[in-house]
Write a protein that binds this DNA or RNA. Structure first.
Lengths: 171, 171
DNA sequence: CAAGATTGACGTGTCAATCTTA
DNA sequence: TAAGATTGACACGTCAATCTTG
C-alpha cells in the first residue's frame, strides 16, 4: 500500500473524497427538489419539522439549536429569514423575559406538510433505498462514533430520547 | 416497525439525521482546525491540492470544477477570493483565448504544504481512525452508489483515473 | 456576572444572466 | 450559436461583539 508524506494511503484519500462528495451532492439534490416543489430549503424543512414535532407547538431558540445541533446564532438568523417569509413567528416567552417562543404560522405548517411526502420520496430514492440493512447499520454506527468523538458530552444525553416519527394526522 | 405518513420508520429518520449531523459537525471541526493552524478553509485546501497535483502546475476553471465536483461559478468565486488573498493567480491560457490557467503562488504552495500534515492528522483522529477496514469498505461503496445514482455519466468516466497520493517531496 | 438571544461582518454556495471568444 | 468563464443577487453559516434579563 502506497503511503505519502501525510501517512494517508491512496485508498484513504479516495474514501474521504467519495464520502464528502456523496454527501455534498446528495444535499444539493435534496435542496433542489425541496426548492423546486415546495419553495423551501433543507434548513427550512429541519426547523419546520422540529417545531411541528414539539409538544406545545413552540420551541425556544436554544432548544431549536440543541435539536438541530446548530449554533444559536445560526438558528437566530434562520428564524429571522423564515419569519420574514411568513413561515414562523416569534412570541414572547411567558416564563423567561430574555427569550421568545418560535412557532409555526398557518403558512409554515402548510409548507411543511406540503413538502413532507416529496422530500421523503426523494430521500428514499437517492439514499435510503440504495442501502442494505447491514449498510444502514454501519452508517448509523459510524456516524454516531464520529459524533461521539466530536462531542462526548452531547451524545451521552441524546441516548435517552429518540424523536418519534412524524405523524401527519396530528395536523 | 413503526411507519408514519411518509413511509419512513423511526430508524430511517434516525439514520438520516445521524449521517447528516456527523458529516456536518465533522466538516465544521476540520474547518476550524485548518483555519486555526493554517488560515485556510477546506474549500481553499481542496483547490490548492487539486492544482498542486496537476501535472503542469495549472488547471482551467472547468477542470477544477470537474475534479472538485463543483459548479463552475463556485470555482470562479472561490478563485477570485483566493487570488485576492495571494494564494493563486490567473494567467492567460495559450491555447484558448476564452479561458485562463489557475496556478499557485509561492504563498499558495507554502500554505498547502504547511496545512497538509495537520489536516491529515485531524482527519485521521476524527474520521479515518474511527473506522474498521470493513466499515471503510461500506462507506466507500455506499458513497459511490449514491454518486452513481445522482450522476451516472460522471461516475463512469471517473473509474478510469484515481488520483495519486500527495508526494510532498515534489515541492 | 451568567445565560438567552440578536446583530454585523464576512466567507461560502447557487442560480440566472451576461460577456467573450471558438 | 456553443462553450468557457465571470458577475450580481441572494440564501446560508460562523465568529465575535453586543444587548437584555436572571
Amino acid at each position: 500500500m502506497m503511503v505519502d508524506a501525510t501517512g494517508f494511503s491512496a485508498e484513504e484519500w479516495t474514501l474521504w473524497r467519495a464520502y464528502r462528495s456523496a454527501h455534498g451532492q446528495l444535499n444539493r439534490a435534496l435542496d433542489r427538489q425541496l426548492q423546486r416543489d415546495s419553495g423551501i430549503s433543507q434548513a427550512d424543512f429541519g426547523v419546520l419539522a422540529a417545531i411541528f414535532e414539539a409538544r406545545d407547538g413552540h420551541l425556544r431558540v436554544g432548544q431549536l439549536a440543541e435539536v438541530l445541533a446548530w449554533e444559536k446564532s445560526r438558528v437566530s438568523h434562520q428564524v429571522t429569514r423564515m419569519e420574514s417569509r411568513g413561515l414562523l413567528q416569534r412570541r414572547d416567552c411567558d416564563a423567561d423575559g430574555r427569550g421568545s417562543w418560535i412557532e409555526l404560522t398557518a403558512d409554515g405548517r402548510r409548507a411543511f406538510l406540503g413538502a413532507l411526502r416529496g422530500h421523503a420520496a426523494e430521500l428514499r430514492r437517492l439514499f435510503v433505498d440504495l442501502l442494505s440493512p447491514a449498510e444502514r447499520t454501519v452508517l448509523l454506527d459510524t456516524s454516531e462514533r464520529v459524533l461521539e468523538e466530536l462531542n462526548p458530552a452531547l451524545c451521552e444525553s441524546e441516548k435517552a430520547g429518540v424523536p418519534a416519527p412524524i405523524d401527519e394526522t396530528a395536523a
